[in-house]
Nucleic acid binder design. Structure first.
Lengths: 133, 133
DNA sequence: TTATAAATGCAAATCATTTGCATTTAACAT
DNA sequence: ATGTTAAATGCAAATGATTTGCATTTATAA
């Protein structure tokens, strides 16, 4: 699906900047920081715009916003929902196809003060094989 | 168990500051920000010390470090492992006793480049009943 | 009791993120 | 096609959490 349509479906006004950013995220298919988005786009737009755009995409659940324990946040477009495990020593990452979704119904039914779950952030941390030698 | 023993077990040198911080976290049993720790301790120690202490406790898995989508990080001592759901509108929180632990073996067995999982961060977001009226 | 590595406090620096505001632009109605 | 208007953008400056360097203090083990 074209970015133009995705934005329309989600009631997000189409702009060149948003197209560039979403195109990039769809292509990359892995978590990327604001700084790196900026670099990859040849610093063609203001950092502020990137911040605001990603915030909007995240609100609409178009992308997954996460954090790997370091200072900056990461954003990812996911064709299929998944999470990651990050090596605490070298930062290497691997996809984790978890099945927490299977538990969602049960989790929901146990909630007292919430009517529904919008999204969740799940990250694993460990030591990769290289670093544990 | 006394803080003194906990620290010893985890090979963390005992100090008055660490005792105060861990005592507080054990008492509170809910996520608390650095600022609030500072307040609750009557600003009796430097913020830097709190940062460094919490980092150390987190490394040793004595406490759970997390983030609820806002600017600051939160730290929690958990008698029984759990997570939270946070209302996107008002920030209200509720405990979520998830069963992701049940999935850990399966997750581990699917990892290619990791020898083990050290810890995980899981947070849910949604709308609380009050706010969804 | 002493030696020593580690912890602390303080001040200053860092760095991701946010804000205000003037300007530009996409979307929609005319 | 054009004008209107709310929303998006860029820029500069502010914010605020977190980190760093360094001199001083303190807990631990010989």
């Amino acid at each position: 699906m074209k970015v133009r349509e995705i934005l329309k479906e989600n009631k997000i006004r189409f702009t060149e900047n948003r197209e560039k950013i979403l195109d990039l995220l769809i292509k990359v298919q892995s978590p990327i920081s604001i700084k790196d988005i900026n670099k990859k786009l040849g610093k063609s737009m203001d950092l502020t715009t990137i911040y605001r755009t990603l915030e909007k995409f995240t609100e609409k659940n178009l992308i997954y916003k996460t954090n790997f324990g370091d200072t900056e946040n990461y954003f990812e477009h996911q064709k299929t929902h998944h999470h990651h495990i990050t090596c605490k020593k070298c930062g290497e990452k691997e996809e984790v196809r978890t099945c927490i979704d299977k538990n969602l119904k049960e989790i929901k039914s146990n909630l007292k003060n919430f009517s529904y779950i919008n999204n969740h952030v799940l990250e694993f941390f460990g030591t990769c094989k290289k670093c544990s030698k």
